[in-house]
Structure formats: structure tokens, C-alpha cells
Design a protein around this nucleic acid. Structure first.
Lengths: 139, 139
DNA sequence: TATTGTTATACTCTATAACTATA
DNA sequence: TATAGTTATAGAGTATAACAATA
């Protein structure tokens, strides 16, 4: 095999780079990284339980709670008791939350485009698609 | 643009997956993740100063020190004062260190191959090359 | 008894600032 | 005075276990 970096090291470095590059976008919307991760996960559909949401985001349920408290206090999401099982609280975006996450995403797509600008368009397309599939498989 | 995950989120998830998958390999060699990162960086050539090594690995110099202490105690690397500027300590792998990092890498390449097995070979090749270039650019 | 959400505690990791020795 | 390496301290982030409410 050709000489190259370890894949894990490359992922780790690129993760750090992306976080750094995206921070200004998120700060402009007054949200932290994990706030955005949660809002973003919710955009694909309300979470039936907080545990499932935590798993989807890749944190554990205890660390999710202060995030949800904060976002709910800002009116970006709502936690409503599930009538079928009152232990559960279903978490759903408000309209305001949906608007904010979309605005964030637009900014982030801009950052991504800038980062990938130097890559040949065809290769870029392949690479992004593969990464997306791998990330999906990792759930 | 097509609907997909945020790139940063994909990187972060894949980083976590890789760390988890590689941990058994590293534990078998009795090294931690950052131990391996340091040894791996040194394999490309000795570091003229610890600060530069820290930057290459992506940590700061204070967090590097206990790692170097541990690895030096195991005889995997040596810190020798630079005669030209005795404040500096050049860090270099020993033969034993070089052997260990290569053995680790072989195991890690196996883990990577397993992870990428489901991807079409041509796409895989493109994707790995692009990631390697991006990670290089991020230095 | 088991599970959801919550809180509290201990532990690890990280960032910052001081200290020494050389320059 | 400035810099490389080191050490110490404070803060943030994380994991674990216990708790109350519901099933």
C-alpha cells in the first residue's frame, strides 16, 4: 500500500480543523458545537426519547440534559411528555429552532466549500459521498 | 447541494469509530493513542525540538512531556541535548521504537482495510488520497 | 424489578501560568 | 530579555453512580 497518513490521524486532524473553521459561524448564532449537533439531529425528525437523541448525537444522556435545558430556555426546542409512556419526553424543534439550524447549516456549507475548493470537483464528489456513507454505517 | 451530513460531523464520528477500532491493536503493543501518534511522527524523522514535535502531533508542548517520559523510560526513544543550543533536546526513535511503531502500523492498516472493505476500490483509492492531501494541507 | 430523565460526585483531560537553564 | 523544557495549578469536559417518577 502506498505511503500515507493513518486514516484515524487524518480524520482527527480534519475534525479539529473543521471545528476551528466553523466556530465563527456557530458563535454568530450564539450556539456551541453540541448545541448545533443536537439541533441538527432534531431537524431530521423529533426524537421519541432523550436517550435515543443522545445516541444519535453520539453523547450519553446525562451530558445531553444541560444542552436541552439551554436550548429549550431559548425557545429553540420543546420537551413534551409522551402520553403513551409518561417517563419519556419527546424532543422537537420549534419553528425558531428549525430556522436557526438552517441558517447555521448554510454558513457551515460555505466553510466546507472553502475547505474543499482546492480538490478536483469529481474527486470531491466521490470523497464526500464515501464519507457520508461511512459515517452512516458507523451508527 | 445534495442532502448529506455535515462534513465536520462525519469526520468526528469517523474519528471516534477509528479510535475505538484501533484501541485493541494499540493495547496489544501497550501504547496509548498519543504514544502512537508521537512515535509515528518521529518515524518520519527525528524532531529537532520538542516544541516542533508537539506542533507536528497537534498537541502543546506541556502535554507532550509525560508521553516522552514514558516512552523514553521504555527505551522507545531518546532525548539528547543539542550541542548547538543546549536548551533544545532532539527526540529520536530507538531501533526498538521504530520496530514497535511499524508493528502497530501494520495492525492499524488491517483495521483500516476492514473498515473500507465495503467501499468500491476505485472510490476508496480516490477518497483516501483526497483525505491524505487535506490532512497535509491542514498542517 | 426495570427504565427514563435527572442530579451529584469523582475522575480525566486541557489550558494557563510560573519556574530553570540556557541563550 | 527571550526561548526550550519542565512543573504546578485551575478549569473544563467526561464517566459513573445514585435518585425520583413511571412502567
Amino acid at each position: 500500500m502506498e505511503q500515507r497518513h493513518d486514516l484515524g490521524a487524518a480524520f482527527a486532524r480534519l475534525t479539529r480543523v473543521m471545528i476551528e473553521a466553523e466556530t465563527p459561524v456557530l458563535r454568530a448564532h450564539d450556539v456551541e458545537m453540541w448545541d448545533y449537533a443536537v439541533l441538527s439531529a432534531l431537524e431530521e425528525g423529533a426524537a421519541p426519547t432523550q436517550s435515543e437523541l443522545a445516541a444519535a448525537v453520539g453523547r450519553d444522556k446525562t451530558r445531553l440534559i444541560p444542552i436541552l435545558d439551554r436550548l429549550e430556555a431559548r425557545g429553540l426546542l420543546r420537551r413534551t411528555p409522551d402520553p403513551a409512556d409518561r417517563r419519556n419526553r419527546v424532543v422537537a424543534l420549534t419553528d425558531e429552532g428549525r430556522e436557526l439550524v438552517r441558517s447555521c447549516r448554510a454558513g457551515i456549507r460555505g466553510v466546507e466549500a472553502e475547505m474543499l475548493a482546492a480538490i478536483d470537483p469529481e474527486e470531491r464528489h466521490v470523497c464526500v459521498a464515501v464519507l457520508d456513507r461511512l459515517a452512516d454505517a458507523a451508527r
